[in-house]
Design a protein around this nucleic acid. Structure first.
Lengths: 165, 165
DNA sequence: CTTGGAGTGTCAACAAAGCTGACGTATTGT
DNA sequence: ACAATACGTCAGCTTTGTTGACACTCCAAG
């Protein structure tokens, strides 16, 4: 407290700084979801469909249980979303080869097309923000976000990150 | 493209890097809301109540219209939340002094107490993440988030930021 | 002083997306 | 043979968002 160096160093941890971080997170997340939301609302879909499509594309052949773990919702909730996507021909559900109780999920051609539209718009905003900020800031952005995740989610994030080529 | 320096510098803008940024945002936001959500679910409240309480605390005496602008919801939706908070004695709605059509919103003692519980838990996580990352990373985090906001929301964020002592 | 419009509150009806609980079926492994 | 697992589905409830309509208060301009 009386150490000027220490209090200087820790200025970024004041309640006011933390509050600004909280509000930044709130407003930025709204920007983050705004573009896909606009595309989705023109169809009969919502954010839940987007999340399912994203992670099926991310890990083709994933099982329903795996998707439930990643999304952290109940199977009833996921099933409602998944059913419409399958009915609309965006997602294909194939009986598992090794374990035939499982269903492996894949995007169809149409599903892939929608995924591209959605992720293109989201990446465009992310790219603009990243370019505006620069590589150093992006590294900091990533480190802070990773430190903010809960244990189990962080594990899943890192495992997706690792499988990402 | 054929310039090695340029392609080196722009490596952080590859689609894979952007996708990881998107997933980091998704998982981090869930961590970000997890603690307040746990507190709120024990009462009859949800995230919408939290947001109202946060911004009323942030700008005491704010009007309903101002709050609508910040939160980006319809007045019917906000009104439902606001009504329960007023009934439960957490928020006070005073008739405006200069313009008596307006309602100035304030937290009561109980409202302030709940605000503290909520923001304490959220700040604790933010503080841990900030400390884990360090001041440079936090600056980057903030700059990227600001670049990610939509125009109108960024305006509101900056104006809150400015009024923050 | 009247009148138009802004700020607010509220009613009804509806939708998206989460939840719990219960049950059925197919399949697997012990 | 039987218990456990993976999945699907029915029914019902909650929160939080949406439209549309209407009433009231009040300010300001004509």
């Amino acid at each position: 407290m009386s150490d000027p160096i220490r209090s200087e160093t820790l200025l970024y941890l004041t309640d006011e700084q933390l509050r600004q971080g909280i509000e930044a997170m709130y407003f930025a997340y709204r920007g983050f979801t705004a573009d896909p939301d606009r595309i989705l609302e023109s169809m009969a879909y919502g954010r839940a469909h987007h999340r399912a499509i994203h992670f099926i594309n991310r890990a083709p052949g994933t099982t329903v249980t795996n998707l439930l773990d990643i999304l952290g919702v109940t199977k009833q909730s996921l099933n409602r979303v998944l059913r419409t996507l399958i009915e609309d021909g965006l997602v294909e559900s194939r009986v598992g080869t090794s374990d035939r109780r499982e269903r492996n999920l894949y995007l169809t051609e149409d599903g892939t097309a929608l995924e591209h539209r959605l992720s293109d718009s989201q990446r465009a905003r992310m790219r603009t923000a990243f370019r505006e900020a620069g590589p150093e800031d992006v590294a900091g952005f990533r480190r802070v976000l990773e430190a903010m995740m809960e244990g189990e989610m962080k594990r899943q994030y890192l495992s997706l990150r690792e499988s990402g080529k």
